[in-house]
């Protein structure tokens, strides 16, 4: 079985789906000859010269026309070079893609997957680092998927492309080449809407997505060694629709919850998870729900490592939750 990075898993899913379904097309900045600035679409233009398009520099154009393609019956997979640059296309996503099925009573739909790298960890400063998933999670009609491993990347991207609704597919760029694992050739599917327990633990539940899953796993190992605390780490994988059952099952078993996310604290998607736990499992809790997050500041350059939650800060969160 081939060993893949997340970049290769993205590429593999795209290639497989383009082979399987001739309605799948790719468009975006530098996705053709250059293979994308992160090389996720490398070589696809050679195999599918008529279905991979380098576009002019306009996210509104990329997303707006992709929506039009989807309305017409294609399965576009637009790439936005960095999630930080998605905002010129935000209007199209929120006002058009997300509402089309609803406002047309299902007569028109937008089966489109917007792929975009998100999150910090590459010293990219304000505009190559942000985690703005909450804006999209807050928009009814969009699905929001965030893989954290190569296998899940391939499986979830495949399912996203096949999904009848618009999917935001957020790729944790810090992990693009950081981890490798075996991923089958050919078809791999992972259902959208299912969380996965990455580490079993009885004392406390950590909920995370993207790169923060890895940070949480490191913190959990340290908690076991240094504090004798066994933390469970739940990788949410899909933010909308959320696997509420997996969250509640875990927290009911452990009685403690730490939610970890990179985005600014206020209004981050982890606030929603905290609210669900508080609403539906408070009687199981031994202590407060703790959030470990980015700060309510723009994303910095030099002090990136201070800004991003790291195992130290997650460990401090674990201690806080265990203090009760």
């Amino acid at each position: 079985m081939p060993v893949m990075t997340i970049v290769q898993a993205v590429n593999s899913a795209l290639r497989e789906e383009m082979r399987r379904d001739d309605r799948v097309v790719i468009l975006g900045e530098d996705v053709g000859r250059n293979g994308g600035v992160f090389r996720c679409t490398e070589g696809l233009i050679d195999e599918f010269p008529d279905r991979v398009f380098d576009t002019p520099l306009s996210e509104g154009g990329i997303i707006g026309t992709a929506i039009g393609m989807a309305l017409y019956g294609l399965r576009p997979v637009p790439e936005i070079q960095f999630m930080d640059f998605i905002y010129p296309g935000f209007d199209q996503i929120v006002s058009e893609a997300a509402k089309m099925r609803y406002r047309s009573g299902g007569q028109y739909t937008v089966p489109m997957t917007i792929r975009t790298p998100f999150g910090g960890g590459i010293k990219g400063g304000h505009y190559h680092s942000q985690s703005s998933e909450a804006y999209f999670c807050h928009t009814p009609g969009l699905k929001v998927v965030v893989p954290s491993t190569p296998h899940d990347t391939k499986g979830l991207l495949t399912n996203a492309i096949r999904d009848p609704d618009p999917v935001m597919f957020l790729e944790p760029k810090k992990l693009y080449r950081a981890i490798k694992e075996e991923v089958p050739e050919g078809e791999v599917t992972v259902p959208i809407g299912e969380a996965k327990v990455r580490r079993k633990g009885r004392d406390l539940s950590i909920f995370a997505w993207g790169y923060m899953v890895n940070v949480s796993l490191d913190a959990a190992e340290r908690a076991a060694k240094e504090k004798n605390v066994e933390a469970e780490v739940v990788d949410l994988r899909t933010l909308v629709p959320l696997d509420t059952k997996a969250i509640l099952d875990s927290v009911k078993r452990t009685g403690r919850a730490v939610v970890v996310y990179e985005a600014p604290r206020t209004g981050g998607y982890g606030a929603e998870i905290s609210a669900i736990i508080a609403e539906r499992a408070i009687e199981y809790l031994h202590g407060p729900i703790v959030r470990v997050t980015g700060f309510d500041t723009p994303f910095p350059y030099t002090l990136e490592d201070v800004y991003m939650p790291n195992p130290d800060r997650v460990l401090a969160g674990i201690e806080k939750a265990m203090a009760f």
């Binding site: 520099l57 930080d84 990219g124 350059y301």
Partner: peptide, 25 residues
């Protein structure tokens, strides 16, 4: 600007030189 922005994103108000964004346009 205290290392907040990545290299090549400077600002110089005394010369009416606006702060630089990465966002094209």
């Amino acid at each position: 600007v205290h290392g907040r922005q990545m290299p090549c994103h400077y600002v110089f108000r005394a010369g009416n030189y606006m702060s630089i964004s990465s966002c094209v346009g």
